[in-house]
């Protein structure tokens, strides 16, 4: 597993300092899928990553509440399966030390275990709660999970200037429909720039097909000459007026994490 990841990574680093622009098919369905595949292809081989996250939750009166988390991710080289991740909670202080282990899958439910430090208990939990709010924020659980191509069906809609503040770039606008069960969305509209194939904006439509939320992905920075990561994600809920800003800090890639860092044994000592 480790060896495979490392080899893939090495191959990509040598082979792909700059991506050639790809030919996209004309058919809207195939074109939408090709755009998603290109986004995924360009992020292949990141191996593992560790980062800290700060979430600021704001209600419609402007009152704020802060969450701080750390996330470790191990890329799953199998395109038919999801990544492994561990999230450790640092703030609010009453949940400090709580940790969540996820073995993600594409269309089936993820495997998830939660560690509760006060009683030293590891609990296998239900992961079918895709559309519930994550830590009381405007992000749902499903907004957090990795966006493998196979999770959606696609329709390319049009090309247009990217949303502010990236009007200078051109974006592919694609509609995607979740294929997994229990999604809270009927569809999502995504804006992906034509230069680096980075997601710039997502609109989420709820089960009543109303525009529920808009996500803006801002402050992209490049790591290891290949992997772009947005450092500020702003999610605005149009129905409640609430919003959540998610700031990523201190990304670290390929620090040598392997499967043994994503087990129940490692969960109960995750601190």
């Amino acid at each position: 597993m480790i060896r495979i990841v490392t080899l893939t990574t090495a191959a990509l680093i040598f082979a792909a300092p700059a991506f050639a622009q790809i030919e996209l098919p004309e058919d809207p369905t195939e074109r939408g899928r090709a755009i998603a595949m290109e986004t995924e292809r360009r992020d292949l081989g990141f191996g593992d990553s560790s980062a800290e996250m700060r979430m600021v939750l704001r209600n419609s009166q402007g009152e704020e509440s802060v969450r701080e988390l750390r996330q470790r991710t191990l890329e799953n080289v199998d395109p038919e399966d999801g990544d492994l991740s561990m999230i450790i909670f640092d703030r609010p202080r009453d949940v400090e030390g709580t940790a969540l282990l996820t073995h993600a899958h594409l269309l089936e439910d993820d495997d998830q275990w939660l560690y509760l430090p006060a009683i030293a208990r590891v609990r296998r939990i239900s992961s079918s709660n895709k559309s519930g709010p994550f830590l009381g924020s405007e992000f749902a659980f499903e907004d957090f999970s990795s966006t493998e191509v196979g999770k959606y069906s696609y329709t390319w809609l049009r090309d247009e200037p990217c949303p502010t503040p990236n009007e200078a770039l051109t974006c592919h606008v694609t509609e995607r429909v979740p294929l997994y069960e229990n999604s809270g969305y009927t569809r999502q509209i995504t804006w992906t720039d034509t230069t680096d194939y980075l997601g710039r904006q997502v609109e989420y439509y709820n089960r009543g097909d109303d525009l529920l939320k808009t996500l803006q992905l801002l402050d992209y920075r490049l790591y290891l000459d290949q992997f772009w990561r947005a450092h500020e994600l702003l999610m605005v809920n149009h129905l409640t007026g609430k919003e959540t800003t998610l700031e990523w800090v201190s990304f670290e890639f390929q620090s040598g994490l392997d499967e043994s860092d994503f087990t129940q044994a490692s969960l109960r000592r995750a601190r």
């Binding site: 439910d109 296998r124 939990i125 239900s126 079918s128 709660n129 229990n182």
Partner: peptide, 9 residues
């Protein structure tokens, strides 16, 4: 033992 089937445990 525990069996986890969606929302049913």
């Amino acid at each position: 033992a525990q069996a986890t089937f969606g929302p049913m445990l």
